[in-house]
Design a protein around this nucleic acid. Structure first.
Lengths: 197, 197
DNA sequence: CCCGTTCCGTAACAGTTGTTACCGTAGCAG
DNA sequence: CTGCTACGGTAACAACTGTTACGGAACGGG
């Protein structure tokens, strides 16, 4: 039984290439040949690792979400109080530190693709619901006396603000620099800061 | 000199078709033949009205922005006080009333295209700067005593929130229904409401 | 009524897309 | 070292992309 391969490793490599191509050339540049070239192989390997392009995109989307979830878990675990965890997780979503708007561009690309593909749309929904549930849990820990209604409103407002800044910064980095984004997040978290009424 | 045509009317018709295709089939479905079919003509007319596909996209983008600017002007003029104007203009950007998330989908599509095309990116930037200037002017009218720094932070936070809700609602309408979006906007406008400190 | 010009649908073009079939080759079993 | 097999690169495929060239037709002027 000669020559065995690590299929999962290949898929992760290819998904990584998908992110890079998406960040650099955008959605119209996301072609199988571009992904293969970025991954240092040919389309032959791509089509042996995935049955079709769509499967590659879904895998890349899932892996992206899984990694952000891991980072969010880590950020949450590293925080002492719920407010710190909330600020850390939301600050992570702003994503300015690691890649210079790279991840935001990838996020926008997947979102635009999701508007045309129902499977990608569902992945987006479950990922967003999961993120919403995380934020809601942390907000509830900060303000246990709040009603469900207020909890939901605050949660979705925070997520909306963060994702909006993310998207706008991806398209116009100069207008939404990192410090401003952080200040905006801090201001939005004002009423949740411990010690406030 | 026989048979004259109204070129500008043709271009507007085609731009309208671009929006419809973009809203329905997303960015990958935005092909010249799809636009022509939606407009009730063939690619021949499209290529006679525009020198290339890119010119069509730029025209559609410009026209879209021009129309939203007109609506924003009207909403602003119909309001009495600056706070009402601010709420009206931002509520207009949430866009729930007219098309069911249609315009949001178009907006996301153009944004994703802008990440891959520098000309579209510049259009987006000038449109967003114009919108930011409008909001900032209205915020300044509500709170004349604020510093420039606070003005900018509040302006971009409001715009970020509105666009974020817009984008998230486009991808997951059930999770971000119209009433919730309006409540979120109202809450964010809380500190600007007249009569508050 | 007829002509001339402008307009636009038709159809072909070259290039690229996702996908498929094929075969050379690299690596382990014997 | 030899042979077999799974792997993956090559190249062809059909479908589709934006774009171009051409010819028929519809309309206003004489």
């Amino acid at each position: 039984m000669p020559k065995q391969r690590d299929v999962q490793a290949q898929r992760e490599l290819l998904s990584n290439a998908v992110w890079q191509v998406l960040a650099e050339d955008g959605l119209p540049g996301l072609t199988l040949r571009a992904v293969a070239e970025r991954a240092g192989c040919t389309t032959g390997l791509v089509m042996h690792a995935f049955p079709a392009k769509k499967a590659l995109l879904l895998h890349a989307r899932d892996l992206l979400y899984a990694r952000t979830a891991v980072r969010a878990d880590a950020a949450e675990a590293a925080s002492r109080d719920p407010f710190g965890a909330l600020a850390a997780v939301l600050g992570l979503a702003l994503d300015l530190p690691h890649g210079h708007h790279e991840e935001s561009r990838v996020w926008v690309g997947f979102l635009a693709a999701a508007l045309a593909d129902e499977d990608l749309a569902e992945r987006h929904r479950v990922a967003n619901h999961s993120f919403l549930a995380r934020i809601r849990r942390l907000v509830a820990a900060c303000r246990p006396e709040w009603t469900d209604e207020r909890l939901e409103l605050t949660t979705k407002s925070l997520v909306g603000l963060v994702e909006g800044l993310n998207v706008l910064a991806a398209a116009d980095p100069a207008a939404y620099p990192a410090p401003l984004q952080r200040q905006a997040l801090a201001a939005a978290l004002g009423e949740l800061r411990p010690g406030r009424s």
